[in-house]
Design a protein around this nucleic acid. Structure first.
Lengths: 115, 115
DNA sequence: GACACATATCCGCCTATGCGGATATATAGT
DNA sequence: ACTATATATCCGCATAGGCGGATATGTGTC
């Protein structure tokens, strides 16, 4: 029950919804998100921790970078919620704008040793 | 976007999840919920206001009583979320216990003029 | 080890919101 | 109008959590 509430609480904040919207495209590191969302590093990192703690995402270190992506091993509720959520985030104007910014950003991203 | 976050925020609290679990059975008034959840009236009323404000439920006055039920006219996200949610709430032990208490309570509920 | 870079955490500040008793309001019955 | 009942709102208090700059930690390079 507490876990269920926690799962929803993680979705109750605009920045976190935008982060999840972007992660629908695939894994991203903190600095990618900073660039696209135009928010300070501490803010991004804090929200990522929150999402990870709630069980939505997990991070993997590759060199200096931490890459975050959706977890595939969540419970039933989480899996079904993710399906509903990803479909609906795509419709939100703010998320669509973020997607465009991401596409633009990926074109010019400086080369990265690990990917 | 703010609306989406608000919808989830309403689901981020245990008492509210329990209330929604009970409302899956059909409409209930504040005093029904007080009895079944064994919480003070101000607490129940506050959470119901919160849920109504987020768009999950609506209240209808019948005499002295306010009956609350799920809204049927929510957006796509809300409808799909409700389907997922109701299925999963039923599985939670705390919600199952509440259902039993509700069944017990309904047997002895004193007659009500309006229903 | 010194440095640069990416990330996590700490800090003080502020707002939102939880709680439950007390009070205000609305309605029905007499 | 008075009373009883149901509900909503107010109040003070406590905690959670948002923010972003500052600092600490981890990692690769030289």
């Amino acid at each position: 029950m507490k876990e269920t509430a926690k799962l929803f609480k993680a979705l109750s904040e605009e920045v976190r919804l935008r982060v999840l919207g972007l992660l629908c495209h695939g894994e991203l590191c903190v600095c990618d998100l900073m660039e696209v969302l135009d928010l300070p590093q501490s803010t991004i990192s804090r929200h990522l921790s929150y999402l990870a703690n709630a069980g939505w995402i997990s991070g993997e270190r590759r060199g200096v970078w931490m890459y975050y992506r959706f977890r595939e091993d969540g419970g039933d509720l989480q899996q079904e919620m993710l399906a509903v959520l990803s479909r609906h985030l795509a419709v939100l104007p703010a998320v669509a704008r973020d997607h465009e910014r991401l596409a633009q950003y990926l074109k010019t991203r400086r080369p990265c040793a690990c990917c």
